[in-house]
Design a protein around this nucleic acid. Structure first.
Length: 305
DNA sequence: TAAGATAAGAGGGACAT
DNA sequence: ATGTCAGTCTTATCTTA
C-alpha cells in the first residue's frame, strides 16, 4: 500500500494539479511548488493493522455504525446494579435506586421499540393491501393479527414484512378469500418460503384455526381469468364437489385442482381451452394441470364424451 | 402448436432418532 | 433438534400428434 495518494484539487499557489497526500506525515503537498497545503490530515482509518478477520475483530475498539433501521439507532442504555463501573460494591440504597432506574429504562425503550415496529409494519401492510386490492375489513383484521404477534414478542428477530404478509394471508384464509400464499408473497418484499414460515408460526402461536383451502373457491377466479363460460364453471364446481366427497382433493394445490376441473369441464362442453391458458390463469404449471386432471379422470372413472 | 412424458430439484409434513 | 421418507409441485427438455 502506497503511503502517497493523489488528491483531487489544484494548488492555490502555483495552480498545479499535482497534489499528493502523504499519509505517513499527515500532509498534503503540492508537487508543483512544494507547498504544504494541509498539515493536519485526520486519518479516519484504524492506526493498527490486521491481517485476518479475527485479528481485526480483536483489535477494533468501536462498535457497528449507527443505523436508522434500529429503533434506537443502535444506541442503548445499560444500567448495572451489581456494582459500579469498576466492579466495586455499592450500597444497598444505591443499588435499589439503580434497579428502579433500570426497570424504567427497559420499559420505556421496549415500548418505544414496539411503537416503532408497529409504525413500520402498518406502512408495509398498507402498501401490501393496496397492491392486492384488499377490502378495508380484511386489512383491519390483518392489522389486528399483526398486533397480536407483536404483543407476544414474536416479531423480534423476524422480518416485519414477512410477518405482515403472513398476517394478511391468515386474515384472508379465515375469511375464505381465495388468494394464494404465492400471490401474497409476490406482492411482498419477502419470498414465499419466509412468509409461509411466519404463517405457520402465527397459526401455532396464536392458535388460529382456518377452514381448509377449498379448490371450489378458486373456480370463478381462475375461470374468469381464463375466460371460461359460466356453464363450464358450474360443471367444474360439480366435479370438485364430488372429488371432495371422495377425499381426493386433500394435499393437492387447490389452484391446480380447480384449473384441472375447469379444463375437464371445458373440453367436455366442447369449449376451446388450452392447458397453457388455464395454467397461466391459475398460476400453476401445465404439468400440474396435467397431473391433476389425469388423476381426476382416473379416480372418478370419468371418460371423455 | 398443444399436449404428453420424463427427470432433477425444492420445500414441507409425518415420523423417528 | 435433526434426519429420513413419500408425495407434491416446479422447471426444463424432449417427443408426439
Amino acid at each position: 500500500m502506497s503511503l502517497y495518494s493523489k488528491v483531487r484539487a489544484t494548488c492555490h499557489e502555483c495552480g498545479s494539479g499535482h497534489l499528493v497526500r502523504d499519509e505517513k506525515v499527515g500532509e498534503i503537498i503540492c508537487h508543483g511548488c512544494g507547498l504544504v497545503i494541509q498539515d493536519t490530515i485526520i486519518d479516519n482509518g484504524p492506526e493498527w493493522r490486521a491481517f485476518t478477520p479475527e485479528e481485526r475483530e480483536s483489535k477494533r475498539r468501536t462498535g457497528p455504525r449507527t443505523s436508522l433501521s434500529m429503533y434506537d439507532k443502535g444506541f442503548s442504555t445499560s444500567i448495572f446494579t451489581k456494582g459500579d463501573l469498576y466492579g466495586k460494591k455499592i450500597s444497598s440504597s444505591e443499588r435499589y435506586k439503580m434497579l428502579r432506574l433500570r426497570r424504567m429504562s427497559v420499559r420505556t425503550s421496549l415500548r418505544k421499540s414496539v411503537e416503532r415496529n408497529l409504525f413500520q409494519a402498518m406502512i408495509v401492510l398498507n402498501r401490501l393491501c393496496e397492491k392486492l386490492k384488499i377490502p378495508r375489513g380484511l386489512h383491519e383484521s390483518a392489522a389486528l393479527i399483526y398486533r397480536k404477534m407483536l404483543g407476544k414478542g414474536l416479531v423480534r428477530g423476524r422480518s416485519i414484512a414477512a410477518v405482515a404478509a403472513a398476517s394478511l394471508y391468515l386474515a384472508l384464509r379465515r375469511a375464505n378469500v381465495p388468494r394464494t400464499l404465492k400471490e401474497i408473497s409476490d406482492a411482498s418484499s419477502r419470498n414465499k418460503k419466509e412468509v409461509s414460515r411466519c404463517y405457520r408460526l402465527v397459526l401455532w402461536e396464536l392458535g388460529y384455526k382456518t377452514p381448509i383451502d377449498d379448490p371450489i373457491q378458486y373456480v370463478s377466479k381462475i375461470g374468469s381469468n381464463a375466460g371460461i363460460d359460466q356453464e363450464a364453471q358450474m360443471r367444474a364446481l360439480e366435479l370438485l364437489r364430488k372429488a371432495r366427497k371422495m377425499g381426493i382433493t386433500v394435499g393437492k394445490d387447490p389452484s391446480g385442482m380447480a384449473a384441472a376441473a375447469l379444463y375437464i369441464s371445458s373440453i367436455e362442453l366442447g369449449e376451446k381451452v388450452t392447458q397453457g391458458r388455464l395454467a397461466e390463469a391459475a398460476n400453476v404449471t401445465e404439468v400440474t394441470i396435467r397431473n391433476r386432471y389425469k388423476g381426476l379422470l382416473r379416480d372418478m372413472e370419468l371418460k371423455w364424451d
